[in-house]
């Protein structure tokens, strides 16, 4: 994706199987929203191929729209409407896409129950709390029973209670067999709700895998703590290759040191490191461990 000569997204290569919850993670300005808007068909791309549910979103027919749910960061639209008004009106547009197996739209009362808004059904939309409002946005995204749901920054601007609200809701959607793609700049959030993280930095995907895989594969250095048995002094060494270091130390000083702890860098350390390097313009540098990882997850 480029604006004039300014390439903002390059070599984005994502392949998402059905039913997966994927988090597109990256610092502000990394191109998360642009990526998602290209996938949603809301934005024209400058090059490359995109295939979402078997169609190019840019030229997809209206029937394709009925299979894709989009949760928007809304703020003051339909302020005087009641909660049920919005669901009934939006749901009306899906009526002709229902099948015997998948009735569309989703029944309003059932859906409100599902997202935990039943007791607010008759409330004016502008009187909802931030978390409730976001629950309504998710309900609107789900009213057509989509196969694929996009959530762009679902917790931005919410207080901690509202954030937990949304996390619980997303976790609760797992049994819908709906593929979910969400964007966030919050690693803890991504770890909590997603099966798979895609880290977007400097305009390309720099890491792709489950939280555990990323932690193992991307740790560039580990902390090694050793205690000197004679003095009792503990020393900390940051080593890119702890195995080689330990082999060397233990061979050189047999019986003199005790290994207290070998700790891989936390996912947060890894993430911040990647983001820092991508932003400083060094490029993300050699991350040789990523390629084999990609093969594993495909």
């Amino acid at each position: 994706m480029a604006y004039g000569d300014n390439v903002v997204l390059d070599s984005i290569d994502i392949d998402v199987p059905r039913g997966q919850v994927v988090a597109l993670l990256g610092p502000n300005g990394a191109g998360k929203t642009t990526t998602v808007e290209i996938l949603e068909g809301f934005r024209r791309r400058s090059g490359g191929t995109v295939d979402v549910l078997g169609a190019d979103p840019e030229h997809a027919p209206e029937a394709w729209r009925a299979r894709v749910g989009v949760v928007l960061q809304s703020w003051r639209d339909h302020a005087t409407w009641r909660v049920t008004d919005l669901l009934r009106v939006v749901g009306g547009y899906y009526a002709s896409y229902g099948t015997a197996a998948v009735p569309r739209p989703w029944d309003t009362d059932e859906l409100l129950d599902r997202v935990g808004l039943s007791e607010h059904a008759g409330k004016r939309i502008d009187r909802l709390s931030g978390g409730q409002r976001r629950r309504l946005d998710v309900a609107v995204g789900l009213v057509g029973r989509p196969e694929l749901l996009f959530l762009d920054e679902p917790t931005t601007g919410l207080d901690p209670a509202g954030r937990r609200d949304v996390h619980e809701l997303v976790a609760d959607l797992v049994d819908l067999d709906t593929t979910i793609m969400l964007t966030t700049h919050d690693l803890a959030e991504a770890e909590k709700v997603a099966d798979r993280l895609l880290i977007l930095a400097g305009g390309s995907i720099v890491a792709d895998g489950s939280p555990d895989q990323l932690r193992l594969q991307l740790s560039r250095s580990s902390e090694v703590r050793l205690r000197d048995l004679a003095t009792g002094e503990v020393t900390v060494h940051t080593e890119p290759d702890p195995t080689a270091y330990l082999t060397e130390v233990l061979a050189r000083r047999p019986g003199e040191v005790q290994v207290v702890e070998v700790r891989a860098a936390s996912l947060e350390d890894v993430y911040l490191d990647i983001v820092r390097r991508a932003e400083s313009g060094d490029g993300v540098g050699p991350l040789p461990t990523i390629d084999p990882l990609r093969e594993v997850t495909r």
Partner: peptide
């Protein structure tokens, strides 16, 4: 509607903008 997201919501729905 362009600024508060109403039109974007319409765009996300099949035939929403027409409707």
């Amino acid at each position: 509607e362009r600024e508060d997201g109403t039109l974007l919501r319409a765009k996300a729905v099949p035939h929403g903008m027409t409707g």
